[in-house]
């Protein structure tokens, strides 16, 4: 990527970044960087990254950044935001961090409608630890801990995080799922999520379908195919809850 195409909030000194070639993390962070730029809020952002491949973003941005522990980025950002409501809090985490070890934090922050943005990178695996099964691994997906493929009878069906959050999201919440195959659209979702926080409306939870060629052991073509076909089929992309939508029955959410 040339310097020109980098979002302003990216830190050139730490580029090229540390993610594997073909990794989706970089694209999610690009979408986020563009959203931060558009809103011109770099001075107010507190970016928290989880443990998982997301930790590689600890020096990625020209944004004040704290790397926290696996699954604990949500409460960390909640605490910061409660203490200093002027800050714009972003919790950046993997699907393992958000839906397994830290799911209680995600659920409770949503219940409280904490004014933060949670970004969950869904790469259907525990990437950093070497490709074990995640709550999001697809049925039949081979991982290091499901060598014969995820067997729903044994390991259950994959968790649709945004749908779960949407099912009880309080008024003012914003819930969406984007994909790194549509970076511009993902960036718009992220911008809306940030705006939602800036307008003090409620929590924003955005999942980003992402890629992990290293652990999927896929080439470029197959990686993209897996993302656009298998994953997108199981995990539909779009806005699930939005305070801007004025659909009937959702008026109270405005």
């Amino acid at each position: 990527m040339s310097e020109q195409s980098m979002p302003l909030s990216w830190r050139t000194e730490t580029k090229p970044h540390k993610f594997c070639p073909g990794c989706g993390h970089g694209l999610v962070l690009k979408a986020l960087g563009m959203a931060v730029d558009r809103l011109n809020i770099a001075e107010r952002v507190l970016f928290g990254c989880d443990i998982g491949c997301s930790l590689l973003s600890w020096d990625f941005f020209n944004l004040d950044t704290v790397q926290t522990h696996h699954g604990r980025t949500v409460p960390f950002i909640v605490g910061a935001k409660r203490a200093r409501p002027h800050l714009v809090g972003i919790a950046y985490m993997g699907d393992g961090g958000a839906y397994a070890i830290g799911v209680q934090h995600l659920v409770n922050a949503t219940m409280r409608n904490d004014r933060i943005l949670v970004i969950i990178v869904n790469n259907t695996t525990y990437a950093m630890t070497g490709g074990q099964m995640a709550p999001t691994s697809l049925p039949g997906q081979k991982t290091e801990t499901t060598p014969g493929g995820r067997e729903p009878h044994q390991e259950g069906y994959p968790l649709r995080g945004p749908e779960m959050i949407a099912s009880f999201a309080p008024g003012g919440a914003y819930v969406a799922r984007g994909s790194v195959s549509q970076v511009q659209r993902l960036s718009r979702f992220l911008e809306r999520g940030l705006e939602n926080q800036l307008q003090d409306r409620g929590i924003s939870v955005i999942e980003a379908l992402s890629t992990c060629p290293t652990n999927w052991r896929t080439n470029a073509v197959d990686t993209w195919k897996y993302l656009e076909k298998e994953m997108t089929e199981y995990y539909p992309v779009g806005e699930l809850v939005s305070p801007w939508k004025s659909k009937a029955g959702e008026a109270n959410r405005l």
Partner: peptide, 19 residues
């Protein structure tokens, strides 16, 4: 908070902002 992990990490977040 929802548990002590959350209490601890929320406190860390608050403290790092200078509270």
């Amino acid at each position: 908070t929802e548990d002590e992990l959350s209490a601890g990490f929320a406190a860390l977040g608050g403290i790092m902002t200078g509270a």
